[in-house]
Computed example of a mutant assay.
Amino acid sequence: MEQVRQALLNSTLRPGDRLPTVKEVVGSLAINPNTVLKAYRDLEREGLVEGRQGVGTFVLRRPDGPPPSEQAVLRRSLAAWIARAQGAGLADSDIESMVRAGLRAAADEAIA
């Protein structure tokens, strides 16, 4: 689900595009077909995709969020921050911990 959402946000997938079949996803990722079916159903419930009997699953719209151009700016900014953190000697696990802590702190501030 997250991969599809990301692809929609960064315009890799666009409204009208057909998603791979469950069989194609299972074959390329070696995951349980029920997992793929559930993800497609959840995306459909969110109104992002639509399953068409005998034809496939198609993208209806992109999720709410910043447009691709703003995401690109944010991605570049994040990449620069990661490079600085690595240059300072932080391991990937330390960087991940810092990002998670930052996300938690932002969520706490939004609630307060």
Rank of each mutant, 00 (worst) to 15 (best):
E2A: 10
E2P: 06
E2Q: 09
Q3G: 09
Q3Y: 10
V4E: 01
V4K: 04
R5D: 12
Q6T: 15
A7E: 09
A7V: 12
L8Y: 02
L8H: 03
L9V: 03
L9H: 09
L13M: 06
R14A: 07
R14G: 00
G16D: 08
G16L: 05
D17R: 06
D17Q: 04
D17E: 09
D17Y: 05
R18G: 05
T21K: 09
K23T: 13
V26E: 06
V26L: 06
G27A: 10
S28T: 14
S28I: 09
L29Y: 03
L29C: 07
I31D: 02
I31W: 00
I31Q: 05
N32P: 01
P33R: 05
N34F: 06
N34C: 00
V36Y: 03
L37H: 13
K38Q: 12
R41Q: 03
D42H: 04
D42F: 01
D42Q: 14
L43E: 06
E44Q: 12
R45C: 00
R45Q: 14
E46I: 11
L48H: 02
L48C: 05
V49W: 04
E50S: 11
E50Y: 04
G51D: 03
G51L: 10
G51N: 13
G54K: 08
G54Y: 07
G54I: 03
G54D: 03
V55R: 14
V55P: 00
G56Y: 03
G56V: 08
T57D: 10
L60K: 15
L60S: 01
R61T: 12
R62T: 13
P63N: 08
D64T: 11
G65V: 14
P66F: 12
S69V: 12
S69K: 11
V73K: 13
V73Y: 05
V73H: 03
L74V: 08
R75Y: 09
R75K: 14
R76W: 01
R76K: 13
L78K: 04
A80C: 08
W81L: 11
A85E: 14
A85V: 03
A85I: 07
A85W: 10
A88M: 05
A88S: 14
A88E: 15
G89R: 05
L90T: 00
L90G: 01
L90A: 01
A91G: 10
A91Q: 09
A91P: 02
D92K: 05
D92Y: 00
S93L: 10
S97C: 07
M98D: 13
V99C: 07
R100D: 14
A101P: 10
A101S: 06
G102Q: 07
G102K: 03
L103R: 09
R104F: 04
A107L: 07
A107P: 02
D108A: 06
A112R: 15
